[in-house]
């Protein structure tokens, strides 16, 4: 009797989380995949038929979809590269003891606490020539001809959400990389100094290799996460002007929320999921190949 109870005990503790996640995340995922093959439009009582691959054929001919796909790549790559580069720089700066480090750390990590919708709104206001200083500063610097709103310029509007996302995401990389940096034993650097390595050589030969596992995992996960993150775009531009800032994630949301076309939205979502899976598989294959060579 006691044995059975003891055996069941861990399942009892894990059950609530497993049930909840199964019901609220995995069941909807499966349903969502099935929607991709059905005609599901909210408020339309006649919808619900099985339509096979029709959504995917529409999608293939949908210029907005291809545009959103292209934007997704630009958005994801520039956000990850900028967040990672600046985050690494910040982590390196914070890795040495100096006067006021704690206070500065608190300040530079603060954006992480700002709700994403608010950071989007805040940056939208900063780009707005009515209340924001940025258009004037940009035109004074000669980056812009006239102090206009960056977000209403179809050629460059995507940079608005990118900047907001970089601002908001730097702390994530800085904090994780700083933790990894601080776990590198100090005597490695002391040994390298004894061996005559300069600062750059130390960075190349010690810091980077030891940081590599952390970098790999955070960059990979963040890439997936940023590609899936429509909030800033929805808040700042709603994909406009003229779909110029639409990424797949925000396109899915607009299809579902504004056009109430759940079927089509789910088809786009299925494609996004497939692309992310391919990305993860490609990375794993790459790692496998590198490990074999090493």
């Amino acid at each position: 009797m006691r044995r059975t109870l003891l055996w069941l005990e861990p399942y009892f503790y894990a059950a609530p989380s497993v049930i909840l996640i199964g019901a609220i995340m995995f069941v909807p995922l499966v349903i969502g995949l099935s929607y991709a093959f059905h005609d599901i439009t909210l408020l339309d009582p006649l919808s619900g038929d099985y339509v096979g691959l029709q959504h995917f054929r529409e999608l293939y001919a949908d210029a907005s979809f291809w545009n959103a796909l292209r934007n997704t790549v630009i958005w994801t790559v520039s956000c990850v590269v900028l967040q990672f580069g600046l985050g690494l720089m910040l982590a390196l700066l914070l890795n040495r003891p100096f006067v006021g480090r704690r206070a500065i750390q608190l300040c530079v990590f603060l954006p992480w606490a700002v709700p994403s919708f608010l950071s989007g709104l805040n940056w939208a206001w900063l780009f707005n020539p009515v209340v924001g200083p940025l258009p004037y500063w940009l035109s004074a610097l000669g980056v812009m001809k006239t102090p206009d709103n960056l977000l209403s310029d179809p050629d460059h509007a995507l940079w608005g959400p990118i900047i907001a996302n970089v601002w908001w995401g730097i702390p994530f990389f800085a904090i994780t990389l700083l933790a990894a940096l601080q776990s590198i034993p100090k005597d490695l650097y002391e040994a390298a100094t004894m061996d005559g390595a300069n600062a750059w050589q130390q960075f190349r030969r010690i810091t980077l290799p030891l940081l590599a596992p952390t970098i790999a995992i955070t960059v990979m996960l963040r890439t997936v996460w940023i590609a899936n993150f429509p909030d800033l775009i929805v808040v700042m531009t709603r994909g406009g002007p003229a779909d110029s800032t639409q990424i797949l994630a925000s396109y899915i949301f607009t299809q579902a929320f504004q056009r109430l076309d759940f079927g089509y939205a789910s088809a786009v979502a299925a494609v996004l999921l497939l692309l992310l899976l391919l990305y993860a598989l490609a990375l794993l294959a790459l790692r496998h190949a590198l490990a074999k060579r090493g």
Binding site: P10, A14, S17, V18, I21, I24, M25, F26, V27, P28, L29, I31, G32, Y35, I40, L42, L221, V224, W225, A227, N228, P230, A249, I252, F253, A256, F257, F262, A265, S266, A269, A270, L272, L273, L276, A280
Partner: peptide
């Protein structure tokens, strides 16, 4: 345990936009 932990990890990479519509319908 391995399976459950794995499932929880997967949810961390989950495209939440994907389940907006089904959750509404549920």
């Amino acid at each position: 345990k391995f399976l459950i932990v794995g499932v929880l990890m997967v949810t961390q990479m989950f495209p939440l936009v994907m389940i907006v519509a089904p959750i509404f319908r549920l």
